[in-house]
Nucleic acid binder design. Structure first.
Lengths: 231, 231
DNA sequence: GGGTGTTTTCGCCTGTTGGTCGAAAACAGG
DNA sequence: CCTGTTTTCGACCAACAGGCGAAAACACCC
C-alpha cells in the first residue's frame, strides 16, 4: 500500500581547485534530464547502509582514498523530485584535499559552486546545502584538515579558507585561533619562498585528521570545566 | 532491480517533565518486538515528503500544535535494523514546551531518556542522537524557546536547561548570555513568589519563536562585521 | 655588497564574551 | 521588626578574537 519507494544516495564532493570551491559532477547521457549535470550516486543496495553505499558509488567515479571526509547532509524527498518514479535521496557531503587530483571518467568534471552548469533534478539545492554545511563547520570544527594537504603553510591554508568561506580571512588570526584550539602543530620545517622572495613560511600540520568539534561552541558549559587552551 | 525498499519516518519527541528530559514512546502490540517501546512514526506516503509525513504521523499520537519544533536528525539504514523487511528510516527531533500536556492514546507514554524501557529496533539509538542534538543546539541557538512556555521566569528557564543539558547552569549567566544574544526580552511583569517567600521573579519571553543560530559560533568571521549585540 | 620589495611571523592593544562571586532588593512568616 | 528565602544586579577576572604594525627572512637588482 505504501507506493514502491526507491532509495538513492547522492554525494556532493567538494574540493578547492584554482582558488575556487568546486563540486564533482557528471553529465547525464540519458533521459530524463539528458545533458544536465548530476551528482555522483545511485541506488541503495540490499546489503549496505547509506554510508557504505555512498562510498561504494563514489569509488566508481573517483579514487575514494582522496575523499578524506564524508558526512550525511539530509534527506531529499519531494514526491516528484525525480519525474516518473518515487525516489528518496540521502545526500552526503564529501571533501577532497587540495593537493590531490583524482582521475575521473570522461563524463565527469569539476565545476565551481558559484557558477554551476544546468543541473539535474534537485541537485543544485543539494550542492547549496553542502556548501553551507562546510561553511558552518569550518568555523567551529577542525574540518579544515579534510580540505588541506597533510602539510601546508599558513598562507596556503588561508587561501583554502578564503575559497571555501567566500570572505577574507586574516592569516594572523587563522593561525592563532587554530593553534589555541590545539588542532595545529608546527613541523619545524620551512617551505621554499616564492619567486618574488619573502620570508620562508613555516610548515604546519593538523594534529589529528578526524573531525573534532571545538568546545568554544559549548556555551553554557558546565561550571568549573575550563578549556585547556591547547595542551 | 534495487531491492524493494520501504521508507518510514520516526520522531523522537522530547519534553522536560518533572525536571527530567522525557521522550514520547508507544508500546508495540504486535510482533516483531511486541511489548517493546517504539517511537511514533510510520510509512512515508506517496504524495508527501518526509517533513509532511512526520507531522501527519505525529498528529495521530499527540496534538501537533504542542510540538513547537521539528527538525531532521538523519537516516538510519542498517540493512537489518527491522527484521524481515528492508526499511530505511528518516529520524526527526521534536520538541514540546514544558507547560503543555497533550493527550496521548492509552498505549503511549512519556519516559525519561535516562531510564528508557526496553525499546524496539534501533529506536534507543535514535533517542540518543536526538538528545545529543538538543544538547548541542541549546548552546549556540535559541532553541530553548521550543522547550519553554511563552512566558517564564529565569529560574524556570534555568531548570529546563539543567534538565535538558544534564549539568548545572548558572541563572545569572543564562540570563546575561541570552539577553546579550538578543533572544530574551523582559515583559515587565513579575511572577508571584513561592510559598517560602523570596523576591518576585521577572517574567521573560523569547523575542522570536523560530530557530536562530547565534553568530557567536561564526568564528573566523569576515573582517569588520561585528555582532550588533542585540539591537 | 647594500638597498628595495615581498612575504611571513610575532607581539601588543582593544573590545567582547562568559564564568564567578557577593551584595542588595523584594518578598513571606513569625 | 527580625530572619530566612529567592531573585536581581553590578563588579571583577580570564579567555578569546580581531586589528595593526614592527621585525624577520628571503629574492632581486643595481
Amino acid at each position: 500500500m505504501p507506493a514502491a519507494t526507491g532509495h538513492e544516495v547522492l554525494a556532493a564532493v567538494l574540493q578547492v581547485r584554482a582558488d575556487e570551491l568546486q563540486v564533482l559532477l557528471w553529465q547525464r547521457g540519458m533521459d530524463p534530464d539528458r545533458g544536465r549535470w548530476a551528482l555522483p550516486g545511485g541506488a541503495l543496495g540490499a546489503d549496505e547502509d547509506v554510508e557504505e553505499s555512498v562510498r561504494r558509488q563514489l569509488a566508481e567515479k573517483v579514487d575514494v582514498r582522496g575523499v578524506t571526509h564524508v558526512e550525511q547532509l539530509g534527506v531529499f524527498s519531494a514526491p516528484h523530485r525525480v519525474p516518473g518514479v518515487r525516489l528518496v535521496a540521502t545526500a552526503f557531503l564529501g571533501l577532497v584535499p587540495s593537493d590531490v587530483d583524482p582521475a575521473v571518467p570522461p563524463d565527469t568534471a569539476w565545476h565551481p559552486v558559484d557558477r554551476l552548469p544546468a543541473t539535474a533534478f534537485d541537485h543544485a539545492e543539494i550542492v547549496e546545502d553542502a556548501r553551507e554545511r562546510l561553511r558552518a563547520k569550518l568555523s567551529y570544527t577542525n574540518l579544515g584538515f579534510a580540505l588541506a594537504p597533510r602539510e601546508f603553510t599558513v598562507s596556503a591554508l588561508r587561501d583554502l579558507y578564503v575559497a571555501a568561506l567566500g570572505h577574507p580571512v586574516s592569516a594572523t588570526n587563522l593561525q592563532r585561533v587554530l593553534t589555541r584550539r590545539g588542532v595545529l602543530a608546527a613541523t619545524g620545517e620551512t617551505a621554499a619562498p616564492g619567486p618574488a622572495g619573502g620570508r620562508p613560511a613555516a610548515v604546519f600540520r593538523f594534529t589529528e585528521r578526524a573531525l573534532r568539534v571545538t568546545d568554544a561552541s559549548a556555551v553554557l558549559r558546565p561550571p568549573g570545566v575550563r578549556d585547556s587552551a591547547g595542551e
